[in-house]
Each structure stands twice: as C-alpha cells, then as structure tokens.
C-alpha cells in the first residue's frame, strides 16, 4: 500500500470498529481542528449523542485524556451550530459531548481518572489488531466513582492489589 494512503486506511478501520460497538458510533467528522490541536473523529450514536474520539499512542494516554476533556468541552457549545448547518444529523446538543479515548493500553492513572470522572462522560477503549489494517475496540468496564459519603481512600480492591477488568 502506498505510504500516503495508510493513515486513511487506518482511520477507516477505526471507523468500522466504532460502528461495531453497542450502540454503534457513526463518524460525522474527522481530523477536526479543535482547541489548539486536531480531533481524530467525532461521532454520533443512534440517539444523536456526540462523542469525541481521540487515539493515544502507548504511554501518552494520560496526557491524551486531558486533551480529550478539553476538546469535548470545546465542542459542546458548538453542537447547536452544527445542528443548524446539518439538521439531518439531529445531534443531541443538550447532552454536550462525550469522550472515547482509544489506545493500545491504559495507564492505571488514566483508568482511575476516568473512574473519578464517571463513565457517562468518558470511556476508554483498547485497540486490538485484527489482521492487516483491521482493528477491534474493547470498551473497558471501569468501576463507578465512589459514593460521596465514602472517605476518599482507595477501594479495598486497590489496597489489596487485586486487578480485574470484569464486573459482577
């Protein structure tokens, strides 16, 4: 494959993987200039909810998380304008924008930060290769944030060192 076409193919692979999620995320814009830097993909789900999708290189996920929060904050007030420009998209502008951070793997600090933010607004998905230039996304199930009444200490799970991405 010519070198210059590879990024397009890789972006296409990610778009396909996003469509295979439940609910599917349909890409409505890519490589969008956001605040200072560019946003990889902007998607909508069948209910019109908008998600900013950023891809992070291994080891850069924590910094990329901060960038993603900034980008979704930047995007949220612009969604009403987008609805005027493209009413057929029926974006749920009142819900603001969510963030899906995609990376080969995630630092524990990133996971903990996302747990603290709450899963409704920010999700993490691991990028898993599927043959040549095909990928799959595995959305991580993270613990919900602690109840406000609980002291701000690490959960027993963290104290004991127990690790699992599963939930009962």
């Amino acid at each position: 494959m010519p070198t210059e076409r590879r990024p397009q193919r890789e972006r296409l692979a990610l778009r396909g993987a996003l469509l295979r999620l439940t609910p599917p995320l349909e890409t409505i814009a890519e490589d969008v200039l956001g605040v200072v830097s560019r946003i990889d993909l902007i998607t909508r789900d069948p209910d019109g909810a908008v998600t900013v999708v950023l891809v992070a290189q291994a080891g850069a996920d924590l910094a990329r998380l901060a960038e993603g929060i900034a980008q979704r904050t930047w995007l949220a007030p612009r969604l009403a304008d987008w609805n005027q420009l493209a009413p057929h998209l029926a974006l749920a502008a009142e819900q603001g924008a969510r963030l899906l951070l995609v990376a080969p793997r995630f630092d524990d600090r990133t996971r903990t930060a996302v747990e603290a933010l709450g899963r409704d607004g920010v999700r993490l998905a691991e990028l898993i290769p599927r043959g040549d230039l095909d990928v799959e996304l595995r959305v991580l199930e993270l613990d919900p944030p602690s109840e406000p009444t609980q002291p701000p200490t690490a959960s027993p799970r963290r104290e004991s060192g127990f690790r699992s991405g599963l939930r009962d």
Binding site: S37, V55, Q57, P104
Partner: peptide, 14 residues
C-alpha cells in the same frame, strides 16, 4: 502525542 492512527497501529501490525 498521537494525532493519527498511524502513530499507534504500528505497535500492532508488525
């Protein structure tokens, strides 16, 4: 900081 999938996929694609 990655801006393209190309920055990431090479970790998987050999």
């Amino acid at each position: 900081m990655a801006r393209e999938l190309a920055d990431v996929l090479h970790h998987f694609l050999g």
